[in-house]
Structures are given as C-alpha cells and as structure tokens.
Design a protein around this nucleic acid. Sequence first.
DNA 1: TGCCAGGCCCTCTTTAGGGCCTT
Length: 240
Amino acid sequence: MSESQKCETFVFLDLEATGLPDAYPQIAEISLFAIHRVSLEHPVWDESGDLLLPRVLDKLTLCMNPEQPFTPKAAKITGLNNQNLTDNQKPCFDGTVVKILREFLSRQVSPICLVAHNGFAYDFPLLRTELQRLGANLLEDTYCLDTLPALKGLDKAHDHGTRSRRGKSYRLGNLYRQYFGDDPKAAHSAEGDVYTLVMVFLHRAPELLQWAGTKARSWDEIEPMYSPGPRRSSGRSRNA
DNA sequence: TGCCAGGCCCTCTTTAGGGCCTT
C-alpha cells in the first residue's frame, strides 16, 4: 500500500487455537485491540518513565468451543480445553462471531490494518480458514501487518548487513523482555498476548508505522491455512 | 485419517540443511 492510502486504525489481533498448523487448528479465543494511528504516533509515558497502553482503544475478546480437540500442548499453554469451554456453554466460531467481528471492525475508521505477530504464517490464514468455513469475509479495505518479519527487517536495516542479529529471538515474549526488562503479562491468553503485542509495537511505533505504509498486505492476499470442511464433517483437505 | 506445517532466513550455502515462529 502507498503512503497516500495509509491505515487510520490498527487492529492488534491474537488467536488461541487448538494447535499449530499441522493439527488443522480451530480458533478457541480471539482478542482484538483497535487503536487509531494518532495514539500510536503519540505514545504516552507515566511519571516513572513507563510506556502506557493508549487510553483510547476498543477491545473485543471472545471465547469459543472448537469442534476440533485441543492438542495436549495447546490445552496446557492456553488453559483452554473442550471441557471448560463446554462447561461455560461457549458456542463454536459461528455466524454470530462473524457478525460481532464485522460490527467491531466497521466501527473503526478505515482503512484498517490488522496486526499480528507471525500473522502471515498463523493468525491471518487461520482466521481466513474459519471465515471461509462459514462463507464469510472481513470488510473491504482491510490490510495486514506481521510484526515478526517487520521487526527482523527493521533490525537488519539498522545492522547494515552485519551479523549482530545472530542468535536474537523474535518470539513475542522475548521481544517484550528485551524492550521492557520484564516478563509479559498473561502469556497465552489472547488478550494478554495482544497487550504484549501493542506494547512491543509502541516501543518501535515510528518505524513500524512507516513499515506498514509500504509493506502492509491486502487482506485479500491472505490464503487460508487449509481448506475447511463443513461443520461436523470428518473429511478435510489440505489447501495447496 | 489423525495430530502430519511451511515460508522465511541464516550459514560451516548456492547441486542444502536446519532453526525459527505461531498453538
């Protein structure tokens, strides 16, 4: 996208799901923080010098009970499983979730840029799969930014081709520790990870906003993680 | 069916292999 089409709202996104892509995952929790670019361009610090989460933002967090069983590791790290979601009578990712997502996004000033860490490889394709299963889509004029290649690319540019990045971890929690000298809060809850993502973004906001101006992809370019079968179906085929 | 990724990047590379990153 060009600077003339710069995104007005950045919607930070994280998914908790039943597993990694090899397990044909389904979404169990989604969290979004919608923040206008003006709050990202003008971060605020408190008296102690600590960076603050923007005061003005819209939040949405939903839990849902996937039809797919959780892998043991996914259940362990997320704290979610089919039993506790069933006990709390949570429906699956259904038309109501789509309606809520679309209404949440439609309340934001467009163009909208979705932001996720490793989003091009995980969150965006998985969300695409869940929407495709229902024959649904997000809004027109939606873009996507992945902070993983963005931060790697920015660091590479700073290093001027040297090898100083060797061994550096770009896991979201490690980036937070590196930038703020503290452990991230509520890791592997969707809302906790979105908070961490927003803070990491704010720490590098001028560079990332500039990066988004030229490197954000259209949502329409995102391919599904896999081709979803119909609900309650045993057969599924991997997307080529 | 059953739990199986895969695109990207780096390097002891390029006729390849391995680790990262997401749950």
